[in-house]
Amino acid sequence: MHGFANPTRFLAIARPVTPWLAAAGVLLAGYGLYAGLFLSPPDYLQGETVRILYVHVPAAWLGMGGWTGIAVASLAQIVWRHPLAGVAARAVAVPGALFTALCLLTGSLWGRPAWGTWWQWDGRMTSMLVLLFLYFGYIALANAGDERSGVSRATAIFGLVGAVNIPIINRSVVWWNSLHQPASITLGGSKIDAAILYPLVFSALGFTLIFAAIVLMRMRALLARAKVEARLRRMAAA
């Protein structure tokens, strides 16, 4: 892991990888969304409304996966003082917040035709909204610090503590009676028929690669800005 500790070494890998991640992500997600709109069958109960699945589930996965990434990076920063961990966590925060917001929006657009409501304060929806506010708090904290590219120790602790919400979101439909149905895909298998499931595999994988490309680009921007700032500071001192 410390092999990537050197920003130069990290950039030597990140630079060529970024366009490939982006291209593969756009192709996979594009095919997944196309198949989800035009090739897969409607659902026996919900009809065509089920197609929102192909954007809602990747958004939920990336919103929650994003914070899990922030938590792991925060741990690496606090325990091992990994120099790139703070940069990575900071780069994840904005796309993580975006996909959490997209999950809430697409969920609302799904809830109206399926359940008959745009919004209800049930466990799943409320805990997901809490995640969005945690992201806002994290972004504000990260931008308030005077770190050149990473985040302060306090911000990293916030990233770690906020991860408590992730299992709560996951379990919310089990612990409490909720309007949202339980998970369709678990370790035990999938309750989604293969004909409806396969576009989701493509779109989830595709959006994940796009997410990774966005994170790499944001990391590169943070590192480049830190370099300029360090140079200006040296020039001012000289």
Binding site: P42, Y44, Q181, S184, D193, I196, L197
Partner: peptide, 9 residues
């Protein structure tokens, strides 16, 4: 409230 199963008609 619907359940977690999805399948073609």
């Amino acid at each position: 409230k619907h359940d977690e199963r999805y399948m073609p008609p």
